[in-house]
Design a protein around this nucleic acid. Structure first.
Lengths: 301, 301
DNA sequence: TATGGGCTATACTAAAATGTATGAGCGACC
DNA sequence: GGTCGCTCATACATTTTAGTATAGCCCATA
């Protein structure tokens, strides 16, 4: 093993190869060429003294060691991205407000149905502010600095985080007007059994708590399953059946009908979370405050 | 600003320049040359679009932006080191036991007076295990993965950490035999005022809790101050006066006398801490267990 | 069986990064 | 005042690295 520390760029190459699965794909991703990527991996393997990939004509197969090292490399990538994001806040400003990039993590539904108007107003007030939206349900975004601010539906467990409780976002059963005209409006929860129900594909924390609150759901035979809340919403809008979505989203769409309002009324607890380190960073603070205000107004309706 | 991501090596160069204070010093540190370092900084500045350093003939003066970016770069360096440490565990093994590098953070006194015999026995049993000792009182070592295992004198507040309480290490007042022969043995805490007392240079959490427990210490006029516990110990051993050290260390040295045993008996609470992620890593687990056993035996005496 | 598209590995060439040598400025010290 | 130490900046030669082109392998598909 060489005693020289390998180039940090090799770690980036290694991570990309792990993500893409082949030297050629990694080369495309990084804007380099396949021989270069191959040389980087060769150099890294020589440097650390053991093999990272088994070469096959179909691509590369990572060794056990490579799998172990991947999370470290991923953390490096997060750090590098965070550094670059922080750097965008220091350039020469073209106006009076804050500048720089803030990365927000949120669920798909929140990011697509709720945040856009809030972010539009924020962008109006802060023209030099760049917002990155990362839509996924990953919980560990903030820990690894994959995002600066996160919208969460569960209280965060980690400390050293600045947490602002937004309040409950009401959710309920919805269906398209046309669907109800064709299939009738259920008058009770038991009546749902006669309908096409849109449910979750995979179980997660949310669905489990939902089942605990509404045991009758176990009896409902779901005829449509979708993993993404966004897809569920699209299915509801397309008149495929009855499903669960945020009440406020239903109100905005004149074709959606909120059914069994009294029988099923739930609140989705919502939190805004930010690294404590960032609370003194103007662009993050301003974005955080704008999100608190916007989300609170949304939840209060 | 260029839209290409800068080389990660530039971040390493940037950090080294921040730490060393000049291009030339950073070049020596990294085994490169001063023009290369200068070009790296130039390229990084071009890439992010603003200046990081103001060049002066005495060296470089970091801009505010550079100060902001430094912690990000430091985190990058910690994680790169952690990756490299993890990599050492995968090479071809020359024997049956575990292999790889484990980095231990501890205070100077613990690291020099207590750990060596424990680590010697561990090294005997695990010849391929490489131990790195990082001796300082920094608290945030584990958070940034600057170490794998830490010996702490205060209960850690962060979660996601595996904590093992060791018990109290007794500490007490000590002096060299010769000093006591020349200056007499104090018969009470008040009598300490007549003696040369070795105290802490700067206040920290430990000294504050010490003062709270023993208010009379405020009245004692310290004639010798040292920031490092290790230096204090050396002063005690050299017969400079009376100071505080671990009872077990005093017992091992036939020339040290433990005075006012009944009047002053304190226990230093001790904890072993490790990242939860590492508990399944054999080399870390084995080292952790060896430290728990060794430290418990030490504290139990 | 033939063919197209995916992959890696290898020569060879072009570009980019590094090292060397040197100049110039500032401060400490004799 | 001169000299030595340190610093950064610049011009030039060299080495290193990346890109290009090509060959060989495997698999899917017509």
């Amino acid at each position: 093993m060489s005693d020289l520390e390998p180039s940090w760029d090799f770690y980036r190459t290694f991570l990309t190869v792990m993500q893409e699965g082949s030297l050629s794909a990694a080369a495309r991703q990084l804007g380099l060429t396949q021989p270069t990527i191959g040389r980087h991996i060769d150099a890294l393997e020589t440097s650390i003294g053991f093999q990272l990939f088994i070469r096959t004509p179909q691509g590369l197969m990572p060794t056990e060691a490579a799998v172990d090292l991947k999370p470290h490399a991923a953390k490096l990538a997060s750090n590098a991205a965070a550094l670059l994001r922080a750097a965008t806040g220091h350039g020469p400003s073209s106006s009076v407000g804050v500048r720089g990039t803030v990365r927000i993590s949120a669920s798909e539904v929140i990011g697509i149905e709720v945040l856009p108007p809030i972010l539009a107003a924020l962008g109006e007030a802060q023209p030099d502010l760049i917002i990155e939206l990362s839509l996924s349900d990953d919980v560990e975004d903030l820990l690894h600095q994959k995002a600066d601010i996160a919208v969460r539906m569960a209280p965060p467990t980690q400390d050293a985080l600045l947490v602002q409780r937004i309040g409950g976002i009401p959710i309920g059963l919805h269906a398209h007007r046309c669907y109800l005209e064709a299939n009738g409006v259920p008058q009770s929860l038991e009546g749902l059994r006669e309908h096409r129900f849109i449910a979750f594909d995979r179980e997660n924390e949310f669905t489990r708590s939902l089942r605990k609150l509404m045991p009758f759901l176990n009896a409902v035979r779901p005829v449509l399953k979708a993993d993404s809340n966004l897809a569920q919403l699209a299915l509801i809008r397309a008149g495929c059946g009855i499903g669960v979505c945020q009440v406020e989203i239903g109100r905005r769409d004149p074709d959606l009908v909120h059914i069994l309002q009294k029988e099923l009324a739930l609140n989705l607890q919502t939190f805004l979370v930010m690294h404590e380190n960032l609370k003194t960073t103007p662009r993050c603070r301003i974005t955080f405050d704008a999100l608190v205000a916007g989300m609170s107004a949304y939840a209060g309706k």
